[in-house]
Simulated scan of single mutants.
Amino acid sequence: MKSKKHLLSFISILIGAICLLTYEAIGTKVEPDGALVEPFFLLPLSYLFIFVGIILLLFTSITSVLKRK
Rank of each mutant, 00 (worst) to 15 (best):
G53V: 04
F59E: 04
F49A: 08
I54H: 02
A35H: 13
I18W: 01
E38W: 07
I13R: 05
T28Y: 10
A35T: 15
Y23I: 01
L43E: 02
V30C: 00
A35S: 15
I26W: 06
V30P: 00
F41N: 08
L57P: 01
I62S: 10
F51I: 10
I18C: 10
G34T: 07
F49G: 01
S61E: 09
E24M: 13
I15D: 04
L43H: 04
L14M: 13
I13E: 01
A35C: 02
K29S: 09
I55S: 07
G27K: 02
T22Q: 00
T60K: 11
V37Q: 09
I26L: 14
L58A: 13
L42K: 05
L57N: 13
V52Q: 02
L21Y: 08
I62G: 06
I55P: 04
I18E: 01
T22G: 01
T60Y: 15
S46T: 02
Y47F: 15
L42Q: 05
G34S: 12
A35M: 14
L21G: 14
F41V: 03
L48M: 13
L21I: 14
L56C: 07
F40H: 07
I55L: 14
I26A: 11
E24W: 11
L20M: 11
T60F: 12
G16A: 02
F59W: 15
I18A: 12
L14F: 13
L56G: 06
I13A: 07
L56A: 07
F59S: 13
A35V: 12
E38Q: 14
L57K: 08
S46D: 05
L56M: 12
T28Q: 14
G53W: 03
G16L: 03
A25K: 07
D33I: 14
F51E: 06
L57Y: 11
K29E: 05
I50N: 05
L43M: 10
F59N: 09
P44G: 08
P39R: 11
E31M: 13
C19Y: 04
G16C: 05
I50Y: 03
I13V: 13
L36T: 13
S46E: 02
A25I: 02
L36S: 05
E31P: 00
E31F: 13
Y47A: 15
V52I: 13
V30L: 11
V52A: 03
I18P: 08
I55W: 05
E38R: 14
G34N: 11
